[in-house]
Amino acid sequence: MRKALFAPAVAIAAAAFPLLTMTAASAADQTSYQADLGSTNDSGVTGTAMVTLDGDQATVQIEASGLLPGSPHAQHIHIGGAGTCPTPANDKDGDGFVSVTEAAANYGAIAVSLTTSGDSGPDSGLAIDRFPADGTVTYNRTVTVSQDVATNLANGTAVVVLHGVDKDGDGAYGGSVMSDLDPSLPMEATAPAACGALQAAQMSSVPNGAADTGAGATAGVENSAMIGVGALALAGAGAAGAIAYRRRADSQA
């Protein structure tokens, strides 16, 4: 009887003491790269891209602004070029646009399509329904990449490119120049708007998100150990009181 009364008290006290949290000693092996995105085709678009590679998993974060709102902006990691971005001098055919074809020697071919969902391979390079379509981009996605991408990242020849520029300023993709990639699309929809080569970040291995730097003594329930002991004492008081009551009842019977 006494043991049965004591058990809940022990449970209350045990619950009041926090579990010891163990910190894993083995470290993730990840390397971070950053690109400062500059404008191409006089887009006015600027931003920053960060890639953290862990094995074949690349966490890609992009913050950019100055894009044409309400229109899709294809975004890719290109590899196999010189690891540079084009200048107006790249406009070889003189149509007023630096096209993807004209920039190919600089930043190479599409290796990763930075889509918002689904496939992220080169085949999704023009999947305009799965790219951001706002004037300001805040992108964060982890995608699987090939060894080729990892090698180009290490060599400084992986380049982040955002596409889609409203060159004539009419608020939509249009104009008479058609895209070198897809003749059914205006050049404005596919021409590069921002570009930056990924280089080793100053923080060689950027952590994944926030830090867990509080274990909650001063917010929520504080002094939980003391509360636990207090609860245990009260439970013990109840148990002892019950025993006393039972014995008194027995002796009076």
């Binding site: 003391m226 509360i227 002991v229 207090g230 609860a231 245990l232 004492a233 009260l234 439970a235 013990g236 008081a237 109840g238 148990a239 002892a240 009181g241 006393a244």
Partner: peptide
């Protein structure tokens, strides 16, 4: 008596 002591202790701690 034990019950009384424990009750006082528990209330003070809480």
């Amino acid at each position: 008596a034990v019950a009384a002591v424990l009750a006082v202790l528990g209330i003070v701690l809480l």
